[in-house]
Design a protein around this nucleic acid. Structure first.
Lengths: 114, 114
DNA sequence: ACACTCCCCTAGAACATCTAGAGGAGAACG
DNA sequence: CGTTCTCCTCTAGATGTTCTAGGGGAGTGT
């Protein structure tokens, strides 16, 4: 059984988290679950990547944390987007579009000798 | 004047180089120039990233090097794709497509509360 | 009691990229 | 001829993100 690649392209985690939080506040575990399901199991966020990323983004002021109780009745830290985080989401989404289109352009280019 | 972002997403350089070499042998300097022009100036490969990457890929057997003379009559190291590199290009192109579509799916998803 | 899921966290390794240099050699220009 | 420019290669070290590989606590179900 070939194991699926489960690496994330470095540099894409932040925008994925921000976008997920644009749908409302959510805790880390739930963010990972949402990204995985929305991407149809392609994007798997490791906890060892996610939690440090959340702390980084909180330090940068893009998200805000608040302890609460999850649906499963567990202690959980709910993150929500700040105004600054919303702007960051817009900027990073635009960057992603420009970047991915550029890569696509290169990869689709007809290989021309000479 | 806002400087354009000129970072490359880590993990995309290899496939861009491989694809460029699929068009025929080329030296490092020329590879960088081609990627930049094909991507319409969006993708800028720094020399400090490119040359180590070329050496990595050569060690992995994806590309082969050969000294020669450039069109500008300069000593240049021409790289060409090996059979293994061709396979790598196909695999990485497929991975890129899967990955970028997954990211796109997340970013385009309608933010749904709750 | 036990296993299982949910939920948070960190240290250190691994890795690719960038910054910031160095250097050589042909070409163009005065 | 001397100077500057472009072409072309290269490396060391810093930076930053991700992964691996753990630890731990607490509710739920058996």
């Amino acid at each position: 059984m070939p194991e699926a690649r489960n690496d994330l392209l470095p540099g894409t985690l932040d925008v994925l988290v921000l976008k997920t939080l644009a749908g409302g506040k959510e805790h880390g575990y739930g963010i990972a679950r949402r990204i995985r399901s929305t991407s149809k199991d392609v994007l798997r966020v490791e906890e060892g990547s996610l939690y440090p990323a959340l702390h980084r983004m909180e330090r940068k002021g893009w998200i805000r944390a608040q302890w609460g109780l999850s649906e499963a009745n567990r202690r959980a830290k709910f993150y929500s987007l700040t105004r600054s985080g919303r702007r960051q989401l817009d900027a990073e989404t635009a960057s992603w579009n420009v970047f991915s289109e550029a890569v696509g352009r290169v990869l689709r280019a007809r290989p021309a000798e000479g």
